[in-house]
Computed example of a mutant assay.
Amino acid sequence: MAAVVGIRAWPRPVVFVGETLLVSVCYYVAGRLGLSQQLVADGAVVTPIWPPTGVAVACLLLFGLRCAPGIALGALLVVASLTAPRLSAAGIVLGNTIAPVCALLMLRAVGFRVSLSRLRDGVALVFLGALTAMLISSGVGVGMLVLTDKLAADDFWLVWLAWWVGDAMGVVLVTPLLLLLHRARRSPPSGRWGEAVGLALVVCVLVPVVTYSSISVLFLVYPLLIWAALRFQLAGGMPCALYASVMTTVAARDEAGSFGALTDIETMMKLQAFNGTLGLTALLLSAVITEQINTRRSVERACHELVEALQHLNAGGSGNTGPPGRGAG
């Protein structure tokens, strides 16, 4: 407790600088992880999943707008690690900062809850926080590349689409997982340790086999995803979806499995379609199941309180009944 009080007693500028550096480091590390899984499509380098957008949106949802400078600094560090700071780099940093902030503002406007305990929260995160807000980062980033002659105008739509989907997948796959970790409990729900370990083992073994199989059997991932979401909601669905997406991206980068005979464009399209449907299924199915469980618990709680109230009324009424008292004298 004394340590917590001591941290809170630090001057606000020191706390702000510390938070900014921490957010920027998290953003930079996520960026380097995303860049490690690059693909080449028609001569352009793309990232099918861009984790920094998920990190940025999660930090803003949890800690507010004070994280925006850290996001900008992290984006600048990622861009600086790839190329010398120029006008195009400034535009990319600006777009990557404004897009998560707009996602936060839109999600706040519709009453988004970080618990993701309602279907409307999952839908809002997908369609507002991911698909809509990330139009800004992709549009500004690719637009700046074209304006500064870093990218041919004919390649605009292809690179924009890949950029947009990669940013959106970062929000869909990474943000829910970070929000879940922020409020994680030490024990899994209902203590289903055995089932959780069994599910993890099956996923870890079967997913690489499916993704590297020469036969196109990627659909076999969905039964595992449904099992994880039905039994463990976000705690099971989102890690399963993220792991399957990463393994599929690795297979696509290695031109292995069902991606071996495809062109670069076909590989990108197939991979992004698979990752997108996987992330949407995991997030929305988990949100639906969580909402149903919470509704059932609320009904059970209301019924229990009603029974207690009726028992209390009956007890009070029975206490007032009995033989009439005899008068004195």
Rank of each mutant, 00 (worst) to 15 (best):
S81F: 10
V172T: 00
L306N: 02
A72C: 02
A261W: 01
V209K: 13
V110L: 04
R113Y: 09
G139T: 08
A168V: 07
A252I: 07
D155K: 15
V5D: 14
D155H: 12
H304W: 03
I49H: 12
S117M: 00
A130V: 03
P69T: 06
V14H: 13
L105H: 13
D155S: 15
L119P: 06
N275L: 05
V140S: 08
A229H: 09
K270V: 06
L284P: 02
M144N: 10
P223G: 02
Y28M: 00
L65T: 13
V123Y: 01
P176F: 14
L119E: 10
G170W: 13
M134N: 10
L39S: 06
L128E: 00
T295S: 15
W163Y: 04
Y243Q: 00
C204W: 12
L61R: 04
L35P: 07
S117R: 05
L206G: 02
G279N: 02
P188A: 11
A80E: 13
T175C: 13
K150C: 02
T132A: 14
I92S: 08
V159R: 11
G141C: 10
G316V: 12
A235P: 12
S258V: 12
P11R: 14
G170Y: 11
L283E: 04
F156S: 05
Y212H: 15
D154G: 11
P189Q: 12
V29Y: 11
I226Q: 07
A229C: 09
C67Q: 10
L306S: 03
Q272I: 07
F219K: 11
A2I: 11
P189V: 13
L61P: 12
A103N: 08
V140T: 14
V29L: 15
V25W: 11
R183S: 06
P176R: 14
L173Q: 07
F16K: 10
P208W: 10
L76E: 04
N96S: 05
G143D: 06
W50N: 01
L218K: 05
L87S: 08
A99W: 01
L201H: 08
G329H: 14
T97E: 07
W164E: 00
P48T: 08
L181R: 09
A68G: 03
S81W: 12
A9P: 07
A244C: 06
R120C: 00
C67Y: 04
L131R: 13
R253N: 03
G322K: 03
F127M: 03
C26T: 10
L271T: 09
P85E: 04
A168G: 11
P52M: 02
A244N: 01
S36K: 07
G322H: 06
K150H: 13
A273K: 09
E266A: 04
V172K: 07
F219Q: 10
L306Y: 01
G170C: 08
K270G: 03
Y27E: 00
V114S: 06
